[in-house]
């Protein structure tokens, strides 16, 4: 199951799906960095993520850090239960902006 991305309402949205482990996190990382390189504000959709490990989380951290450096917006939307458990374990639920979906995020952006 390959990852997808789209541009919607001013955000690049990267859709991660299935298992995001050492085998597939390089692909996730590349996709995230690629969007940021295009100077897009970025949201990562984790609603279809069944499993994520530290390598997958590392891709998110890297994206977060790069966005910050580039002055771009970054956030997670639709975080699945499995993904949220792992983010909590890394205390990253307190670091990443997390929203239910794109519209909620936009409403929050004001």
């Amino acid at each position: 199951m390959s990852f997808g991305h789209r541009v919607e309402k001013g955000y690049a949205v990267v859709e991660l799906r299935g298992d995001v482990d050492l085998a597939r996190s390089p692909e996730a990382r590349a996709l995230i960095l690629q969007c940021l390189e295009k100077k897009n504000d970025l949201l990562v959709d984790l609603s279809e993520v069944a499993y994520i490990d530290s390598s997958g989380v590392a891709s998110l951290v890297e994206g977060y850090q790069m966005a910050k450096k580039e002055g771009l917006k970054f956030g997670l939307i639709g975080v699945s239960e499995a993904a949220l458990n792992v983010l909590r374990l890394a205390r990253l639920d307190q670091v990443f902006p997390i929203h239910a979906d794109l519209d909620t995020r936009i409403a929050d952006d004001g």
Binding site: D53, S54, S55, A58, V61, E62, Q65, L89, A90
Partner: peptide
Amino acid sequence: ELRPGGLGTHF
């Protein structure tokens, strides 16, 4: 320290 690597052992 917020950095991408080294989370595995923590997990």
